[in-house]
Simulated assay, not measured.
Amino acid sequence: MKSRGNRKKEPTPVFSPGRILITLLLATILLAGDSSWVWRNAESLTRYGQADDGTITGFARIPDSLGRAIRPELARLGSHSSGLIIAFQTASPEIRIRWSVLHGTQLPHMPLTGVQGLDLYAVDPVREDWNYVGTAKWWEKDTLSHNTTLLENWTGGLRPYALFLPLYDGIDSLFVGVPEEYILEKTSLFDEQSKPVIIYGTSITQGGCASRPGMAYPAILSRRLHHEVLNFGFSGNGRLDPEMADYLATLPASLLVIDALPNVSAEDVEQKLTDFIRRFRSQSNVPLLVIPNISYGHEDDNRKTGDALAIKDKAYVKVREMCKKTGIRDVTFMSSKRIRFDDDEGTVDGVHLTDLGMKRHADNLYTSIRKKIK
């Protein structure tokens, strides 16, 4: 084994007797500490943000049958848990989480707390008030399994909680723990009679690049609307695939928001958007809200980007006029002016949104969505 610098002393063997003894002692302490805790499998708790489809496995967003019929990269993204919420209630002063992710996704422009982490919110269903509690974070590197404490020293008694799941990875296992003297049970967050809002889109819809799951714009809208939202954002792959139009048309919903233009080339917008709307409307009467391409922070500096966005805007207007002329009903097109940002300070890279950008995008969409579902 090579020495480091001028040091000649060999490092302690990884599997030395002393290190093994220390490892065993630490494991014993951890197990003893958990013996007074009760752990609930999240599979047994209330789940929101996932289509009511008995063929979906675990915490994925699409059924296995659809995964076999679509592009492989789209199917893989469908295994990500973006938009899913686990609901429970407890009076415990402390809440811990154990979870394992499927892929170990790491991105250069997005915090791991958003990619693989979780967010906990406390909910007051009467006042429809959501209070941020904590974000799952960890120090271990290159591991798929994590654990953390999300709540400590709470003295206010029983209340409902919403646990937002990772944006850019899938969940392999998830457990919520409380001290054994407290009860943790499933609860409801939203009106069970209302149908969810579906948002179909791109990496931005999926959550890129929010710092934590609760700051993805569909999650922000879910809290503001106090309404279940299904996140069908697929990073780089919200390309208006006909298979997605077919699947989304089978789902009960109060509204389908199409926010996919950033993943469609300027030359393809008119044809693909037209085909997607027609295909969906031929199978479903769910109202549609179509969103133009958001403004980019570098569109004024990069001539190619600026020109492409101008072409997209013209194609977007053509599709809107086509829907009017051909009598395709209940399709609303938002104006490009309504979703432009006042400055360029809301992105990581000129395109993907920071928490600030996510909040601004949610603000821009909120009024139109609220009107449609009310």
Rank of each mutant, 00 (worst) to 15 (best):
Q50N: 09
W39V: 10
N131G: 12
Q50S: 01
P63A: 11
R68P: 09
I70H: 02
D34S: 13
P125K: 03
E94F: 01
W130E: 01
T28I: 15
Q106N: 13
A69C: 11
I56P: 10
V38F: 09
P72H: 01
D34M: 03
R71F: 06
A87S: 13
T28C: 15
Q50C: 06
A60F: 02
E73N: 11
A32E: 08
R71V: 06
I95N: 02
N131A: 14
R71K: 14
N131I: 07
Q106C: 11
I97M: 14
I29M: 15
A91M: 06
W37Y: 10
P72E: 00
H80D: 00
L112C: 03
L30I: 13
V123E: 07
T113H: 08
D52N: 14
A27R: 10
G58A: 11
G117E: 00
S79H: 03
H109T: 07
T46W: 04
A51L: 07
T135R: 10
D34E: 15
I97S: 07
L120K: 02
Y48C: 05
G33V: 03
Y132M: 11
G117H: 07
P111D: 01
V133A: 00
D53S: 08
T55V: 01
R76P: 04
D53R: 05
L84R: 04
P125T: 04
I70D: 01
A87I: 07
G49N: 01
G58D: 02
L112A: 09
L77Q: 10
G58P: 10
R71W: 04
G49S: 04
G134R: 06
S44C: 08
P125R: 04
D34G: 03
P108S: 08
L84F: 09
S82R: 03
L77T: 01
V123Q: 06
H103F: 14
F59Y: 02
G67C: 10
G83L: 05
L118K: 04
P125G: 08
Y121K: 00
G33H: 02
R68G: 12
E128W: 05
E128L: 09
E43G: 09
Q89M: 10
A75K: 09
S35N: 12
L120S: 04
I86R: 09
S92K: 08
Q89D: 13
V115G: 05
L74N: 00
L107M: 15
S92H: 05
D129Q: 13
T135C: 14
T113C: 09
W37T: 05
T46V: 09
G33K: 04
T105V: 12
I29G: 12
A91D: 14
T105A: 12
A32M: 14
I70L: 12
Y132E: 11
I85H: 04
R47C: 13
G58R: 04
L31I: 15
W37I: 05
V133N: 01
R40W: 06
V101T: 15
L31V: 15
S92F: 05
G114S: 08
F88W: 02
S81I: 03
A122C: 13
L30M: 14
H103A: 11
L30Q: 14
I97W: 01
D64H: 02
D124P: 11
A42C: 14
K137Q: 15
S92V: 03
H80Q: 11
A51W: 06
S81Y: 05
R127G: 14
T135I: 09
G78Q: 02
